[in-house]
Each structure stands twice: as C-alpha cells, then as structure tokens.
Design a binder for these strands. Structure first.
Lengths: 232, 232
DNA sequence: GTCTATATTATGATAGAC
DNA sequence: GTCTATCATAATATAGAC
C-alpha cells in the first residue's frame, strides 16, 4: 500500500502537535518547579501552576495524571539535572588528583546552589519526611551521588587534605553550610546588608566553605589556600 | 455598693473559663507549630490544626482572628522561646571567657536544633521570601541575637580561637552545617544508616560542628579539643 | 492536545444559639 | 468561650466537544 499524498502533511502536523505538546509539558514543569520550591507540595494548586505556564489546569491532569504526577516530574527533572551535571563535571576530571576533583566538585556544588537554590528548597520539602518518592530518588539518583562524594572525601582524608570524620556526615555539614545562606536570602540580606547572590559574595562564600573542610596537607606550608580555578 | 454573695462564685467561674480558654489557645498553637513546620503556611488548613488540637476550627478565628494570626502566634512563640533560652544561657555565663561563652552557646544551639528542629523548618518557610512578618521577627528578636553571636565570634577571632571571616557569614555557615542534618533526617537516615537524633550521633555532631569553626589558639598545642561541658 | 462545563470536596470565615 | 449551621470560594478531578 502506497502512502497517499496527505500522509506527509499529516505526519508533519502530528510532529508539530507533538512538539507543541512537549513545550506545554515543559512549561508546566518550569512553572511547577517555581511554585513547589516556594510553597511545598500541599501549598500549590494546579490552577496557579497552569496559569503561570499559560495553559489550563486540566492539562496538568492530561500530561501528569494529577498533582502528584506533576510533583514526581518536577523532582525527577531537578534532581536528575543536578546529578548529571555533577557526573559530567567528574568525568571531565578523569586522571586529575582526587583532592582537586573533590574541591572542584564542591565548588561547582556551591555555585550551582547559588544559580538555582530551588533544588534545595524542593529537597527540603521532599526529604523532611520519609516517603516512597524520597526512597525512589535516593535509589535512582542521590544514593550513588552521595557514595561518589564520600569516596572522594575518604581519599582526601587519607592524603591529609580534608578534615577527619565520617565522610557522609561531613558531606551533610558541607551541604548545610553551603546552601542555607541561599535558601534564606531575605533573612541573610537583612542581617548582613548584602545579597548572598551578589557575584562577589558568592566567590567569598565558595572560599569560606572550602576553607572550612580542606586542610593544607603539610604543617610547614602556608595557610593560604591555592588559587581556585574559575573556568569550568 | 457592696459585692453580692454570688460574686465570689462568679469570679471563680470566670477564672476557670479563662484558664480553659488559655489551654485551648495553647493546644491550638502546639498543633499549629507541628503542621506549619511540616507543610508551610499555605499547606495547612485551620481545620486540620483544630482537629489535632481537639477543638473546632471556628475557635481559630476566635482566638487568632484567622489563619494569619495563628501563623504570627506560632512564629512568635517559637522564635521567642529560642532567643530567650539563648539569652538566659548567656546571662548564666557572665564573667566566663568569651571563647568559652561562644562555644557553649553554639553547642546549646546544636542540641536545641536536635531537640526541636521545627524552629528551623518554620524559619525555612518564613525566611525564604521577604515579608512584613520576617521583618518584624528580625527587628524584635533575631536581629539582636545575630548581633550578639557576631560580637562573640569577633572576640574569639581576635584571640585566634575561631576561623577568619565575616562573623555573620560564618554564623550562617554554622547554622546551616548544624541544622540541615536534622531538617532532612529521613534522607540522612537513608544515606548514613542511622538517625541523626540518636544521642550518640548528636554528641558526635556537636563535636564535628564546633571543630570546624574553632581553632586551637596555639600552633604548639595538640589538635584535640578540650572536653566539652555536658551539664546545662 | 486543548478547551469548556461541571461534579465533588475542602477551606476560610461568619452568624447566632447556648 | 464553645458549639452548630451555613456561605462563598477555591481546589482536584472528570466528561465530553472540538
């Protein structure tokens, strides 16, 4: 059976429609990331999300099978985007000294948190009580991420370049120290008189966070930390 | 005009009613702290709060003039209870070396966060965007608290006992490092295989947090930190 | 895929009896 | 002060036209 003349046009129309559908889906997720980060799951209505996305709330049901499905899609995108970014950064550093790897990954972590604190706001909602969703995220993405960082911390400790203690525990201390200031920026602004998102502040913040955890490997060396790489 | 015989009984009844009213008010606040900490302002209904408090939702309106008034009452109680506790701890340490004062206040801060992480969960909701409420809390309670800690950090830095850097900045690093682990305990549990609320863990956590920020004043001294006071 | 219309339930707030 | 009854609005979800 030969394809009739209308088929090409038809296929083209289908592709365009699919394209538009994908864009709608993405716009909804974008808007939902913003709202969920600000108000948490219970504090968000699919109506306000869809309005901010420029569509109707019924499309949330169509694309995500309801509010919960939208939440999954949001967490999936945000967490996956973070972990793959870190993973790629690590792969680009193959062969480099592990202490340097760790330092650069953690620096990137801080800068990522400054660029988009919504990951941590979302996690603060998702991880504050046990749930199947949390378990799934841990199993799928975050578990191996924590293992990877713990491995690097252990290696850095062996070389005497990182403070002593349980690697995962120290990782959590780092995460907290690095991100709190961005998660509560209005309060910080009020206390410190400057925005933590100011580029100058971010540089100082990166240095302060790293300085807390990295040690100069030899006692004879100066306490000043080596110049940090700025380029990716 | 003499008071009639019924007055004594009447006054007694009024006192009892007032007492009961106060208890109702307190029970509502207790329940609201729990709910607001978990779900944030938008995610909470006055109905569920009042059910958990064992009353009707109309009493929320009566006692607090609505949901927003309840939110104010909650934040007021939680923040005030924290700052006065720290204030009293400080007053009990009059005359003590400032480095020791700071160390003990920060230790108390960590243990307080472990006892009741809801303060920080509430703040993470209240301080993530600017608002008149936040401004009021800062002006009334938290502003002077941050000033007090900054003063002690500065003094400790002069004595070479605390890491260098802007005192308020370092304070935020400390707050983040100390509290994140309790705010996301289910995630931590999954990663570390133990609860951060385990007494043994809390002790190790206190030590780890303090060790990050306090320095041994002399290079010749051993790196081990002095035994921490456990009592009050 | 997207829209309109609508069903159902939840929520914040109020009025009035006791 | 606390309760019952009720209202107006907002939310999730679904059905069906296009």
């Amino acid at each position: 059976m030969e394809a009739p003349a209308t088929d090409r046009k038809g296929a083209q129309r289908v592709r365009k429609e699919q394209q538009r559908a994908i864009e709608t889906r993405e716009r909804i997720i974008d808007a939902a990331i913003e709202e969920f980060a600000r108000h948490g799951f219970e504090g968000v209505s699919t109506r306000s999300v869809s309005i901010n996305a420029g569509t109707r709330h019924t499309l949330v049901t169509y694309h995500f099978e309801g509010k919960e499905g939208l939440w999954y899609a949001v967490m999936d995108r945000v967490v996956r985007s973070f972990t793959t970014q870190q993973q790629e950064r690590l792969e680009g550093l193959r062969g480099v000294d592990e202490v340097v790897q760790l330092r650069l990954l953690l620096e990137e972590f801080v800068r990522y948190s400054a660029r988009d604190p919504r990951l941590h706001k979302l996690m603060s909602h998702a991880a504050s009580e046990a749930s199947p969703q949390l378990e799934r995220m841990m199993a799928e993405y975050l578990g191996s991420y924590f293992k990877m960082i713990a491995r690097l911390i252990k290696a850095a400790q062996v070389k005497g370049a990182f403070v002593a203690g349980d690697p995962n525990h120290l990782h959590y201390l780092f995460i907290g120290a690095a991100t709190r200031i961005f998660m509560q920026s209005p309060e910080v602004n009020r206390v410190m008189g400057e925005s933590p998102f100011d580029p100058g502040f971010i540089d100082r913040h990166v240095a302060a966070c790293l300085d807390l955890f990295f040690k100069a490997p030899e006692a004879g060396k100066a306490m000043k930390r080596p110049p940090r790489s700025k380029a990716q």
